[in-house]
């Protein structure tokens, strides 16, 4: 790639930052050229973000319908899944899965709620409701 071919398409996911790309400059040497982003890159980043948002929105619907606990919503909202939440909180995955059921989540001990809140970076009262 030549320096003048480095994409400057204004990828929104970069938040106004430029990223360093390596390309062949006018002097014939390969070096850093700052890039405002490439559409192909933006497409795959947004694809990943939208998938996480879709999971959170689905969970939001289930929580409102009373078939899932608020924990599931906050888990996806924090861009996690059961595996990751289990690793971060140190709570077995099968228990995390159980705690996604609203009737079981409603009876959770404060100590467990505190571990989930800590793992998700929020307060316990925030964890129990959806925003």
């Amino acid at each position: 790639m030549d320096a003048n071919e480095v994409p400057q398409e204004g990828n929104t996911t970069l938040g106004g930052q430029r990223k360093a790309m390596y390309a062949r400059g006018a002097d014939g040497h390969i070096g850093i050229v700052p890039s405002r982003g490439w559409e192909a890159e933006e497409i795959v980043t947004l694809q990943a973000v939208e998938e996480l948002e879709r999971l959170a929105a689905d969970a939001h619907r289930r929580v409102s319908a009373g078939t899932a606990s608020a924990l599931e919503y906050h888990m996806y909202k924090a861009r996690m899944d059961v595996t990751l939440l289990s690793q971060v909180s140190g709570i077995w995955a099968w228990r995390v899965r159980r705690h996604l059921r609203p009737e079981i989540f409603a009876r959770l001990r404060p100590a467990l709620l505190a571990r989930y809140a800590e793992a998700l970076g929020m307060r316990v009262d925030q964890l129990k409701r959806m925003d």
Partner: peptide
Amino acid sequence: GHLVRMQEEIGTGGG
């Protein structure tokens, strides 16, 4: 998409 993200978006300098 994941393949492409690992290749381009995760600071690799392209390609």
